[in-house]
Structures are given as structure tokens and as C-alpha cells.
Amino acid sequence: MNEIAELSRWNRDISRTIASLGEESFFPTLFETISTQVQIDYPQVWLYHRDLPPRILYHHIPSNAVSSQVDQYLDGPYREDPFYQTSMRGPKAKIYRLSRVALGDLEKTTYYRDYYHTTGTVDEAVYISRLGGGNVINLCMMRLPEKGPFTDAEYERLYLLADPVSELLKAHSQHHHFAVEHLIQPGINHQIDLAFKTFGASLLSPREKDVLELMLRGYSTDTSAGKLDIAVETVRRHRKNIYRKLDVSSQTDLFSLFINALSCLGEAAGDDPLKVYMAPR
């Protein structure tokens, strides 16, 4: 493809993406635009905040890979994710490659041993966009073995797209419905610790509540068992009971319920915000 034709395609694709700002089609349209430049696999968009569990805003992952890509990630390993850590430290760049953030030692890390090697991917690049209130969006692009790691030329192309992609993510986040539904607003941070301590208390036993708080704070089953001085199997049994009593089926559902219940903290006045959130309207 000659340069004029390639530029014409890029202008067409980026125009479609701009037109989708504020719409549900924004993330898939943005990934389609990126995919015309570089082949990517398992596209995902994550929203991070230092004091809250991560939220997945969008993904296009085969159903048989969701457990390893999303649920297992949320079950503690995200804290060791070099992209998450980079995001929480105040990233200077708008794009990072896994080999760079892992400093070439990925296979020696607990993150690789406990999680990454099960994902079936061989490389990852992430666009990072810093928003207000400590919120950070990560747009993740992976590669499967059959396509191989990103080449230097492909990464250079992704690098050239970093500025428009970052600005598009910021512009999308400023649309009212997105900000209301997803972003932590200034002034609520001091209430988050209260939410950890009260969420679910009206429905769970004291020990189940202890386990739930550690889950929400991102601790794995093994770490939770150590902190509570109980057996791993006991933690697993408590987790199963928590899912049943809160009517959720995954870590993703649990975290979403917790985030949604934050809006009821004020009305709960120190009590379980779930009582307010789940009350008949």
C-alpha cells in the first residue's frame, strides 16, 4: 500500500473513532483502528485506581480464555502486574512494552509464575492514559504465539499512535455517562477504606467479611490464608459462600458490585452500603 492510500485509510479510521466518542462502540472502534496498523490479540481496556480493585471496561477475548485472562488476573496477580505498577507510579510515557516494564526479567517474577504463563500470550503492549482523581486507563494489546512478539517495526508504529490514542481515551472519559459510571470523583477517596470495612457486612459472617475485605484489596487466596492464619481450603470455602450470598459468580462481578455500591456510602451512614444499593426502589 502506498503512503497516500495508507494515510487515507488512517484518516478514515480515526474519523470513525472520533465519531464514536461517548458511545458504547468507542472501544471496539478504537481497537479496529489500531488493528489496521498492527495485528493485535485479546484487546482489553482496564481502569485502575490506587485504592480500588481494577475494572475491565471492555474486552474481546474468546470465552474459553476469559478465566485465565480476566478472572485469574483479578484474583490477586494484578498487584504484581508491571503495567499496573507503572500506572500507579505516575507513568511518564503513553505506551509501554512488556519487555521494558519487566526489565527483561519477566520469567523470574512471581507474576509470571502465578499468572502470566497461563495466558497463552507471548508479548504485550499497553497504551496508558492518566485521567483525573488518580484514575488510569490501560488499553492492552497482546500477541499469541502464532503471530510472535511485536517486531521493532510494529512497536515503532504503535509508538507513533500513542499521542492520538491517549487523547482519544481522555476525551471519551470526559463524556458525562462515562465519568459518572466509572471514574472515582475527587473527595471520595477518604470513604474508600470505610467501604472496604462495611461492604457486605449485613449478609456475611464476621470471618467471611474478613475474607471479602482481603479479596477486595487484591490479595490472593494463599496470601489471605496467611494473613488470617487459616487454611487455604478454608479461604476457598469462605469465598464460595461469599459468591453465593452476594449472588455473584466471578471476581469481576464481585468487584463491579463493590464499585457500584460506593454510590450508596453516604446514604448508608457507616452501615453496609449494600443494604441501600440492593433495597427495593
Rank of each mutant, 00 (worst) to 15 (best):
N2Y: 03
N2E: 13
E3D: 14
E3N: 12
W10S: 04
I14S: 14
R16M: 11
I18S: 11
A19D: 13
E23W: 01
S25H: 06
F26N: 12
I34L: 14
S35I: 03
T36C: 10
T36L: 01
T36E: 13
Q37T: 14
Q37G: 08
V38C: 10
I40T: 12
P43K: 02
P43N: 03
V45R: 02
V45C: 11
W46F: 12
W46D: 04
H49E: 01
L52P: 10
L52Q: 08
P54A: 11
R55T: 10
H59V: 03
H60F: 03
N64H: 11
A65L: 05
V66H: 05
S67A: 12
S68E: 12
S68T: 08
V70K: 06
V70M: 08
Q72V: 10
Y73D: 04
R79P: 03
F83G: 02
F83N: 00
G90D: 02
K92A: 13
K92F: 09
K94P: 03
R97M: 05
R97T: 03
L98Y: 00
L98K: 06
S99N: 11
V101D: 00
K108V: 01
Y111V: 00
Y112M: 00
Y112W: 12
Y115W: 15
Y115T: 04
G120E: 01
T121A: 11
V122M: 00
V122Q: 03
V122D: 01
D123W: 02
E124L: 10
A125V: 13
A125Y: 06
Y127Q: 07
I128C: 14
R130N: 10
L131A: 08
G132Q: 10
I137Y: 00
N138S: 13
L139G: 05
R143N: 02
L144W: 04
K147Q: 13
G148M: 05
P149N: 09
F150H: 03
D152Q: 13
A153Q: 14
R157M: 15
L160Q: 15
P164F: 02
S166G: 11
L168E: 09
A171P: 04
H172K: 06
H175K: 10
F178R: 07
A179Q: 10
V180F: 00
H182T: 09
I184Y: 04
P186I: 03
I188R: 14
I188G: 06
I192Q: 10
L194C: 09
F196H: 15
K197F: 04
F199P: 12
S202E: 09
L203T: 11
L204T: 07
P206Q: 02
P206E: 04
D210M: 07
L214F: 14
L216G: 10
S220Q: 05
T221M: 11
D222L: 13
T223W: 04
A225P: 08
A225E: 07
A225F: 02
A225I: 00
A225S: 13
K227M: 15
L228M: 05
D229S: 14
A231S: 12
A231F: 05
V232W: 07
E233M: 11
E233G: 08
T234S: 15
T234K: 12
T234F: 00
R239P: 01
K240F: 11
K240R: 15
I242V: 11
I242Q: 03
I242W: 07
L246T: 05
D247N: 13
D247M: 08
S249M: 01
T252W: 08
F255M: 09
S256Q: 13
N260G: 09
A261V: 11
S263N: 08
L265N: 09
A279M: 02
P280A: 01
